[in-house]
Computed example of a mutant assay.
Amino acid sequence: MKILLVEDEIEMAGALRVVLEREGFVVDHVASLADAAEAALDGGHDLVLLDRTLPDGEGLSLIGPLRAANAGVPVIVLTARGAVPDRVDGLDHGADDYLAKPFASEELMARIRAVRRRPAGVTTERVTLARLTFDLIHDEAFIDDHRVDLPRRELRVLAALIRRRGRTVLRTALEQAVYGFDDEIQSNTLDSHISRLRRKLAEADAGVEIHAIRGVGYLLRAAG
């Protein structure tokens, strides 16, 4: 899962990033409306965590452009403005949830899981191909009913591929799903993730194959 974090308080942003990355999320952090609008154009984010009070304006004004660039993306507002009129204002502007600071990290995680279960987030919680099942809410892979332990980035690759199973996923789309803005990407890093993932799926007899489409990207389909 890839999250766009829009937060201008550096200490708060750093703490949130630690919590989110510990849970296995890829986090892109921006500190202004302008940078957030530019990030939204790239798409590829599964969730937006949005502060209201930003140096260049009201965070709620970003919800419309975010949805135009990435229809259905869930938005959770994180703000110190927690009075009832403020919460009503945030929800009326289209936020999926509204969480007043300070908050416990456990509550934030629970709210993230909740909004991703709603129709505006994902249309199904699990996707199955052959013996492989992927839980899109919790980012977990299973062969039959047995959980497969995969590193975070291999899970992100698999999530991107299984969402578009049977269709080619562009290399750039895979890189956007796996890496954040600040990650340094070597030319063969994605190929290494794919190679290891392909081997593990074969060893587990998942019944799926990852095919390289030369110069374009990769495709996940049932073996045979």
Rank of each mutant, 00 (worst) to 15 (best):
H211P: 01
F25Y: 12
A37F: 13
R152K: 14
R156Q: 14
E23D: 11
H138N: 13
F25V: 05
G215R: 13
T133F: 02
F25T: 01
L201P: 07
V75M: 03
E11P: 02
V30M: 06
R113L: 01
D96Q: 02
A104D: 08
R199Y: 03
G180W: 08
V157A: 04
D51L: 03
F181H: 09
R87F: 09
L132F: 07
R147N: 00
R87K: 15
I63G: 00
K2D: 10
D97L: 15
L158S: 03
A222H: 00
R81C: 06
Y179D: 11
L49V: 02
G215W: 00
G94V: 04
A202N: 08
K101C: 09
R153I: 03
V84L: 11
A173R: 14
M12N: 02
K200S: 01
D42L: 15
P55R: 07
D183F: 04
H193M: 08
V157W: 01
D86W: 08
M1I: 10
R117S: 09
E7C: 04
R81E: 14
P119W: 15
G82F: 13
L20I: 06
E11C: 01
T79E: 04
I63C: 10
E107A: 09
A204D: 08
V157P: 01
Q186S: 13
E154A: 08
T79N: 02
L41I: 14
D96Y: 05
E209G: 01
A40R: 04
G94P: 02
R22K: 05
H193L: 15
L33F: 10
V19L: 11
L219E: 14
I162S: 05
A95N: 00
R153S: 12
S32I: 09
E9C: 11
V88M: 14
R152Y: 04
R165V: 02
P74N: 09
T189Q: 15
I10N: 04
T53R: 14
R52W: 13
D182P: 02
D28N: 12
L161Q: 12
R118W: 06
V122L: 12
G14A: 06
G90Q: 00
A31T: 14
P85L: 14
D149N: 13
M12G: 02
G14H: 08
E106R: 15
E184P: 00
H138W: 02
G82I: 04
A68H: 07
G82Q: 05
G217T: 03
A206K: 07
D191N: 15
R156A: 15
P151V: 03
V208N: 08
R131D: 06
I137C: 05
T189S: 13
R164M: 11
E106Y: 13
V115H: 04
A36V: 10
A130L: 11
R165Q: 12
L5W: 03
G217R: 03
R113K: 06
R113P: 01
P55D: 00
A159N: 13
A83M: 13
A141Y: 00
F103C: 01
D42G: 12
D191T: 09
E23T: 05
L50M: 10
D51H: 11
G59M: 07
E175K: 14
D145A: 05
D183V: 12
E175S: 09
I10L: 14
E9F: 07
I143E: 06
P74V: 01
P151M: 04
E7A: 02
V26P: 04
Y98M: 10
V73Q: 07
R163F: 09
A114E: 08
A160T: 07
